[in-house]
Design a protein around this nucleic acid. Structure first.
Lengths: 221, 221
DNA sequence: GTATGCATTGTTGTATACAAGATTGAGCAG
DNA sequence: CTGCTCAATCTTGTATACAACAATGCATAC
């Protein structure tokens, strides 16, 4: 846990706390439904309540946190139905990104995507879920950027982020790494062939599988 | 401008200010690029700077406002390229809503949609752009809700909100009311026939027209 | 035993004061 | 005249104190 007391000239404590707390939520270290008590967080980071409040309000506006007037904010805990809706939207957004990437990615970006895809292939073989997970995020982000639609990339990234606590577990399912990589393969092929429709369909299918894998994993826990 | 000093039990000044300032931005009363000075806003609403800061951070996290460390926040002013990207995403999101509405809207919701559509028809004839604009928003929101995907509805509404300062002027273009209503007609027909593909296509086309109309209007100003 | 009322405690919402950074205007030099 | 420097001023970022609300625990009644 990095210390937020260091004070670079070009940022503020509130902004740093937003990143730090956001990261804790995204990685599941603070669980959905848990209360975010201002005093406790302020003491933990050695700051006053003010920047803590600011960070919490930003996290609330981006959906990771729910504010209750006169009561402590809590980490958002979506219902199963809402989660399904969110995964459905993520599938559509990522599909849209993939389709636009097929059309608009630069040659350099395509080369990067292929290199990263190859690296992920090696990881899928040696079975390191944590490392695969990190690079998997990079893979997806390359495709968001490759859409060359900033707003779409942001929206997709934000949606993915909100689903982070619920999808990061997917790679613990047996054999998931290899299947994930095979699905990526089809997406990459479509993008390289500049086939928008195929890219859309393969990515949509891939994300739908992520959701199904999560639901199955939860059933076994 | 409603006075924010009234203090209902179930809300906070910060939350009220967020709504009020957000409304000013959405309606274009505070223009893109304008600075939001905390002291000025606090004096205007008769509160301290604290809830003003909180409101501004929430508006920033939802994209309407850009925060600059140690300098006043400004109302977001997207580049033409970014605007195009946003309209493109809105078209896809609204299309998705319309397609899901074709499948999932309840009979009651469909009846409501038809009634609202008929009301809009009368307005399109008598040429009142402000009133049409308000009911047009209700029309679109009915379709978001009719998708029965909460997250999608929120995302679409948020995107639409952010584009509000840039699309609200469309109805000033000559003959736009009637054309808008004709486009709505095709969307409603597809939804009533539960034809997902047609609903998707017609709504996407409708929003694309909104964007084009905005760009043409700007060119004439 | 359970339910209700009330006081106490803990936390949030807001105002205010002070520190810190950015902006502006005046003075000086070339 | 223009450009640079510096001090004053303005605004933002944060800490702290106080007000207001919610939660908790205890006492009492049934």
């Amino acid at each position: 846990m990095a210390d937020a007391s260091a004070k670079p000239r070009s940022t503020t404590r509130g902004a740093e706390l937003r990143s730090l707390i956001g990261e804790e939520i995204m990685t599941g270290r603070i669980s959905p439904g848990m209360a975010l008590e201002e005093i406790e967080i302020a003491q933990k980071f050695g700051v006053s309540r003010t920047p803590v409040r600011e960070a919490i309000r930003e996290l609330a506006a981006s959906g990771l946190v729910e504010i209750r007037p006169h009561r402590s904010a809590i980490v958002a805990k979506p219902s199963p139905e809402r989660l399904r809706g969110m995964f459905g939207v993520l599938a559509e957004l990522e599909a849209l990104c993939a389709g636009l990437s097929a059309l608009h990615m630069t040659d350099e970006e395509r080369t990067q995507l292929q290199a990263l895809h190859a690296d992920l292939g090696a990881l899928a073989e040696n079975g390191d879920p944590k490392h695969y997970h990190r690079m998997n995020e990079q893979f997806h982000e390359l495709i968001y950027v490759g859409s060359h639609n900033d707003y779409l990339a942001e929206l997709t990234f934000a949606t993915r982020t909100r689903l982070s606590p619920f999808s990061g577990t997917q790679f613990r399912a047996r054999g998931r790494l290899k299947r994930s990589h095979a699905e990526h393969d089809r997406v990459v092929a479509a993008i390289m062939q500049r086939n928008q429709d195929a890219a859309v369909a393969e990515m949509r299918s891939h994300i739908t599988t992520v959701e199904v894998t999560y639901e199955r994993y939860v059933e076994t826990v």
